[in-house]
């Protein structure tokens, strides 16, 4: 399977899902008018990724500015990942947030409140 890469723009993040090296990275700003356009293709690819049994995936999120439409999609993605975890896949997520930004830290905790896969919320120094 080819790697799935969406190049970042001023208002959408870089998205990389590597089937070979088993990682997902989403990095950058995310404030498109309609976040579904950005994240729905990734959700479809994740479905492909987890078709094989007992897959493992190392995930790294690192956002600066994210609008509510994107936050909703990220919440849905966390829920989808939780589903894959429950189905026996190995997921490890590191969510980097801008160091010292309590809003972001709180937001990450909110996103991951119900997650039972392996995750960490880690300050990122710019």
């Amino acid at each position: 399977m080819e790697n799935f890469i969406i190049t970042n723009t001023k208002y959408t993040p870089q998205i990389e899902l590597s089937f070979k090296d088993r990682y997902l990275r989403i990095i950058g700003d995310s404030y498109p008018e309609n976040a579904m356009d950005v994240y729905q293709p990734l959700i479809v690819k994740l479905e492909k990724y987890f078709e094989a049994p007992a897959q493992d995936l190392l995930i790294e999120f690192n956002f600066d500015f994210v609008s509510t439409s994107s936050k909703k999609m990220l919440t849905d993605i966390i829920g989808i990942l939780q589903g894959y975890h429950d189905a026996g896949h190995q997921i490890k997520l590191t969510w980097f947030f801008p160091e010292g930004d309590l809003d972001w830290q709180e937001q990450c905790e909110m996103f991951l409140e119900d997650a039972s896969f392996n995750y960490s919320i880690t300050p990122f120094k710019d």
Binding site: P32, E33, N34, A35, M36, D37, T68, S69, K71, K72, M73, T75, D76, G79, D103, M110, E113, D114
Partner: peptide, 25 residues
């Protein structure tokens, strides 16, 4: 948080969260 988790996103991308976010910030 409830809207974030239980709400649905409309086909135009609206998640019904905008004014909640504005108020929070």
């Amino acid at each position: 948080q409830q809207q974030l988790k239980q709400g649905t996103i409309a086909s135009d991308g609206s998640a019904g969260l905008g004014l909640f976010e504005v108020a929070r910030k």
